[in-house]
Design a protein around this nucleic acid. Structure first.
Lengths: 242, 242
DNA sequence: CGCAAAGTTTGAGCCAGCGCAAACTCCCGT
DNA sequence: ACGGGAGTTTGCGCTGGCTCAAACTTTGCG
């Protein structure tokens, strides 16, 4: 994560923020300028909601830095994490799928920075900027695929396999290479992991402990490092040896 | 379901087929005519694949009659049903989300009829027909929501609740009123139900038997009638009395 | 009309993972 | 430095629902 001054709006937004991000990458410089001038930049502490499920979708966002979990809460208060969104993706694009209310809550997993625009600009973005819509819908499709995969997993795999899979996904998506392994570069609790894999905090903890004893992972409070990804891949595979 | 001559292409497609379906409903008559003239109509037997996961997405479809299950298969060969699509919806719209291959397999649950168009027409549909894109993306959003709900269910609910929920959804979406209850108007096996709720054929069967004894449902081979929807609603709710 | 295939029911045993409970450890604020 | 809250670990008992197994019923076909 990039360092930044907390609680301080960046003085002027530089075009380079957006030029290499897919939805904007094919745009002319002057368009990017316009887009940035219409944007509001904001910093979020870790663990706060950017927007809430059910609230009127008044703005859409581009996550510039940090990491966001998309969660929903059941009537009984249990949290379920649907997906993780890394920096560089759009967020809260309810309008793109014909909703006027956010379908889920977005919670920052780390301190994060996001640009946002009033939703009324959505139509003009789609109309004026070549490729913006296409790239956006690709994102929607990818997320659909991800959720779809989660359904498959939950339907067919054991808890152990699901947790292994979740770790693998996390290190792929946001792993940082360290000396002896790959660390998930944002804080993640056992609880988070359990919400991601539809199990209990306790079971997740037991699995991590067991793997730690076998030298597959190392974990501190809120931090997990995968030492032996291949072993996890083996575990994540249904029904083999052991 | 409407009666129709098996194995026979309808002689001329009538505009009324599409005029009341959301993606087309706001279009002018001449546009509908053009669209129909470009379409291929086809009838499918029950239980056949309209298209397969991973295959190049060469056509997109409008389901005119019947019912389709969207399924995926794991490496180990287990089927998981992601969602059900009723007549009147678009199908195989991979292009809409930036894919050039179908993300899942579509299997007819009943004898069905669908129109289809070559995917190369997709862009022109989006460009030429006001509202087509918007309505399409609404559909995508709805499906996303549905899958999302399935994740929530599977993460937090017991099998009994999930099966009750599935039945309720099915009678809402495609129930036919009969004398003493509501019948699911297409054939559905215990196996299908189990794939829909991520359980086993055996557990699904046991639940149905139990409910039948209590007079909540009646079931023949491949047919289920819900006699007491309210009781199912109670069962589907998490943790209350018994 | 009778057989085979497809679908359903029911039983019995077992175990993964949950619920509950308690202790422990790390981090942060004052 | 020390208290307290947040996060983690571990034990133990219980049970929902899966696995395996077998019989039964309906339907379609030759």
């Amino acid at each position: 994560m990039t360092e930044l001054q907390p609680h301080k709006i960046l003085p002027r937004l530089d075009e380079s923020l957006l030029t290499h991000l897919p939805p904007f990458s094919r745009l002319e410089r002057r368009h990017i300028r316009t887009i940035l001038d219409q944007a509001t930049a904001r910093r979020y502490d870790a663990g706060v909601a950017i927007f809430d499920e059910g609230a009127p979708a008044e703005r859409f966002f581009m996550l510039l830095d940090g990491y966001v979990r998309v969660v929903r809460v059941t009537q009984s208060g249990e949290q379920v994490t649907a997906l993780h969104i890394p920096a560089g993706q759009l967020l809260g694009i309810a309008k793109a799928v014909g909703r006027d209310t956010y379908p889920a809550t977005a919670v920052t997993a780390t301190e994060s920075i996001a640009l946002s625009w009033p939703m009324r600009l959505w139509e003009s973005f789609v109309a004026d900027y070549e490729g913006f819509a296409t790239e956006t819908y690709k994102t929607v499709g990818d997320r659909m695929g991800e959720i779809h995969n989660r359904v498959m997993e939950m339907a067919t795999q054991q808890v152990e396999q699901r947790v292994a899979n979740a770790l693998l996904r996390l290190i792929n998506q946001s792993g940082r290479k360290v000396l002896d392994g790959i660390e998930i570069d944002f804080p993640i609790t056992r609880q988070d992991l359990s919400e991601l894999t539809a199990t209990t905090l306790h079971t997740a903890s037991r699995l991590l402990s067991a793997w730690e004893k076998q030298g597959l992972v190392r974990s501190k409070r809120k931090r997990v490092t995968v030492l032996d990804p291949h072993a996890l891949v083996v575990i994540s595979q249904p029904k083999s040896g052991l």
